[in-house]
Each structure stands twice: as structure tokens, then as C-alpha cells.
């Protein structure tokens, strides 16, 4: 148990940050907690093929997708993002602009941007985390990059 607690201590920051920026809502910490419980429950399925944190991020992404599946959930999230964006509109801080720019992306584009630009994952690692072929991932990242730069430059 103490070894697992150490893993939580080591990776909770990155995981929670990813989920918070991905979902833009307060339920991110609850989801992060669920992710760690799933990781503990299925610890035997971690084969050591890749980093443990990448395995956690994969669980986080699939948990996020299954939690937010459905039209009603999507609409709720878009409303939350819209509120976050409008609340931050008057703030000149770059981080706020980033929040607004991220809000304009689709879930998968946002996740890919956060993984590749925010956390420094390679395209191969990010593709494994998001469960898409690497070619698809590269297209998603390119689209996310283009849209983010457009939004950030427009807000500058």
C-alpha cells in the first residue's frame, strides 16, 4: 500500500492537471480519484510496456470518455467551458487566454495538445494513451496546434 501511495504522490499532479484542463469542470478531482482506484484494482494488468504514468493517463482518458459520453454530458461540458471562457474574457493573463483557446478545441484535440505540448509526450506515447493510430494522432495534434495558435494570436 505504501508503494502505491508513493505512486499516487508522484503522479497525482500531472493526472489532475490533465483532467482539469481536459474537462474544464470541478469533477476532475473525483475522476482522478476513480482513476487511481482503477489503477490499484487492475495493477496486475500493467505490463511495464511504457511508463506507469502513461498507463495512468490512458485510464484517465478512457474514464473521461466514458463519463462524458452522451449528448447531455457534452452539452453540459460545453456550457461549463463557455462559462469559464466568458468569465476569463476580461483577464489579460496568458493562462486565461490559454483556457479560452483550449475550450474551443474538441475533447480529443484538447487531450492531444495537453499531452504533446503540455506534458511532453511523444506522438507514439500520446497515440497509445488516446487509443488512436499514430497517423491519426499526428493529424489531431496538427489541427489542435493550428487552432490554438490562431486563437492565442487573435487574443494577443
Amino acid at each position: 500500500m505504501s508503494a502505491f501511495t508513493e505512486l499516487v504522490r508522484r503522479h497525482e499532479g500531472q493526472l489532475r492537471r490533465f483532467l482539469r484542463r481536459l474537462s474544464g469542470e470541478g469533477g476532475a478531482d473525483d475522476l482522478a480519484q476513480d482513476v487511481f482506484i482503477k489503477a490499484w484494482r487492475h495493477a496486475g494488468s500493467f505490463t511495464g510496456d511504457g511508463a506507469y504514468v502513461a498507463w495512468l493517463m490512458r485510464i484517465a482518458w478512457t474514464s473521461f470518455v466514458s463519463q462524458h459520453r452522451g449528448e447531455a454530458a457534452r452539452r453540459r461540458r460545453e456550457t461549463t467551458w463557455a462559462k469559464a471562457a466568458s468569465a476569463s474574457a476580461a483577464d489579460p493573463d496568458l493562462a486565461i487566454d490559454t483556457t479560452r483557446a483550449l475550450a474551443s478545441l474538441q475533447d480529443r484535440e484538447r487531450a492531444a495538445a495537453l499531452l504533446c505540448f503540455g506534458d511532453g509526450y511523444s506522438h507514439g506515447e500520446a497515440a497509445r494513451i488516446l487509443g488512436v493510430p499514430i497517423g491519426t494522432l499526428k493529424s489531431i495534434v496538427a489541427r489542435a496546434r493550428r487552432e490554438l495558435l490562431e486563437k492565442l494570436e487573435a487574443g494577443a
Binding site: G13, Q14, R17, L94, T98, A113, L114, F117, G118, D119, G120, R145, L148, L149, L152
Partner: peptide
Amino acid sequence: WLRAVLAA
């Protein structure tokens, strides 16, 4: 720039 802005 994106890496710097989005860096954790």
C-alpha cells in the same frame, strides 16, 4: 511557444 504556454 505552445509547449511553453501549456507546460505543466
